[in-house]
C-alpha cells in the first residue's frame, strides 16, 4: 500500500475515532465502518486503529478474525452470502449456491477476478419462514430462486 492510500485510510480512521471515541468500546464500530468503505481491514488500518485506541495491533487482528463479517484479506466490492441452515438447504439453497457459483465462475470463499463479488456461506439469517434467503451486502432477499438471484448479482456494481 502506498503512502497516499495510507493517508486516505488514516484520515478516515481519524474521523471514525472522533465519532466513536478512543475507548476500546469503539473498536467494533470503527472496524465495521472501515470494512464498509474499503471492503476489508488492511494491515495498515489495523495498526492505525490500534494506535489510536491504544491497544495492540494483534488485538485488533484477533477481534477481526473472530467475527465472521470482518475480514483482514482483500475481497470483492460486494458480498453475497447464502444461508446454509438446514431449512434453507431443504428449500433449495444448495441449488442456488451452485447457480451462483457457476454464474460467477468462482467457488465459495472466493472473489471474482474483477473484484465485484465475494461468495460466501453464512449461518442462519433468521429468515427460515421465508427460505431460501440470501444476503447481498446488508440487504436480505427472501424466497429467492435461481432466476432471481442471478438477476440480483447482475445488478451489482
Amino acid at each position: 500500500m502506498n503512502d497516499s492510500e495510507k493517508n486516505i485510510r488514516n484520515e478516515f480512521i481519524q474521523t471514525l475515532v472522533q465519532r466513536f471515541g478512543k475507548e476500546r468500546t469503539a473498536l467494533l464500530p470503527v472496524l465495521q465502518e472501515i470494512q464498509k468503505k474499503f471492503f476489508y481491514i488492511d494491515e495498515h488500518s489495523q495498526q492505525e486503529v490500534a494506535r489510536l485506541l491504544n491497544i495492540h495491533p494483534v488485538e485488533v487482528n484477533s477481534v477481526i478474525s473472530f467475527y465472521a463479517f470482518l475480514y483482514d484479506k482483500p475481497r470483492g466490492r460486494n458480498t453475497v452470502r447464502v444461508c446454509k441452515n438446514i431449512i434453507c438447504n431443504y428449500h433449495g439453497s444448495l441449488e442456488i449456491a451452485k447457480a451462483l457459483s457457476t454464474e460467477l465462475g468462482i467457488g465459495f470463499n472466493e472473489t471474482t477476478k474483477d473484484g465485484k463479488v465475494t461468495l460466501e456461506y453464512a449461518n442462519c439469517f433468521g429468515m427460515c419462514d421465508k427460505s431460501p434467503s440470501i444476503l447481498v451486502n446488508d440487504q436480505i432477499h427472501e424466497r429467492v430462486n435461481k432466476e432471481s438471484v442471478l438477476n440480483l448479482i447482475r445488478d451489482l456494481k
Binding site: E43, Q46, Q47, I55, H56, P57, V58, E59, N61, S62, S65, F66, D72
Partner: peptide, 20 residues
C-alpha cells in the same frame, strides 16, 4: 504488556498468533 501474541480465529480454527 508487550502485546505480540493473541488468539485468532474461532472455534476449532482458534490458534495463538502474531499480528497477521
Amino acid at each position: 504488556e508487550v502485546g505480540v501474541l493473541e488468539a485468532i480465529n474461532r472455534g476449532y480454527d482458534t490458534k495463538i498468533s502474531t499480528f497477521m
